[in-house]
Amino acid sequence: MTTLLEAPALLEATALLEATDLVRSHREGETVTTVLDGVSLTVNRGEFVAVMGPSGSGKSTLLHCVSGVDQPTSGTVRLAGVDLDGLDDDGRTRLRGERLGFVFQDPHLLEALTVLDNILLPSALQADGGGDQLRTRALELMEVTGLAGLAERGVNEISGGQKQRASLCRALLGHPDLLFGDEPTAALNSAASAEVVELLQHFNAEGMTMVVVTHDARVAARATRVLFLADGRVVDEHRLDHGTDAAAREQQVRLAMAALGV
């Protein structure tokens, strides 16, 4: 595979994301539900952190809070050197556009645009000129992710797996500091899921820092670290030894999941 990511000093052990004592609660009438209850998380450059846990454990909420999509009720998030608390809504939106990449469970591609335009959209918005280079790079990413020849297709003309790979290209095109994935394989069949998993690991190997929420042990097995959440708290954490093969790591994750009842 071609190396497309150009992040400098990838393996410096500097903290890219620092979240401290995050609490996220919702009030409905008199009832207050606490979804995150004092979670702290640090992600260094080049890391691939998988977040696991049963439904309702607060995985997605944690991801939304640390990526600036949602705001914690209390606690602080420092992302790529920027304190999210000091940013307003538009400031956080700009930060997401300029510094972060997202892959969701649903690829959320816009039907009004072709596959290529969907991939180009966020990066072209943030760019100031250099559109042609972006386009070239997007086509290269499509090549790498097996989407060659689909650039001019409509979103409804490609498969679910292809859509998710397109959304991965979209997330990576702008050289984000950090890629967030929210159940990126949950809606895919096993073949498509395996392709996406391969790609995630590939880009992480190229230096892309990732935080991925998942139920899938195969995805987590590609991570460098796995965090387990239950009832809004971090209840366990495992570093995976990439010296062992993928099957062994997957086994390690499954054992941890079983121990926690996930």
């Binding site: 816009l110 039907e111 009004a112 645009l113 072709t114 290529l116 335009d117 180009l120 959209l121 072209a124 918005l125 760019a127 100031d128 000129g129 250099g130 559109g131 042609d132 972006l134 386009r135 650039a151 001019e152 297709r153 409509g154 979103v155 003309e157």
Partner: peptide, 24 residues
């Protein structure tokens, strides 16, 4: 819409992207 979308962004960047998306 069953209509296949046309490429609209081309090499455009910045605010032009917003307008092109609107036209799409």
């Amino acid at each position: 819409s069953r209509r296949r979308p046309r490429p609209v962004l081309g090499g455009r960047t910045g605010m032009a992207v917003v307008s092109r998306l609107a036209l799409a």
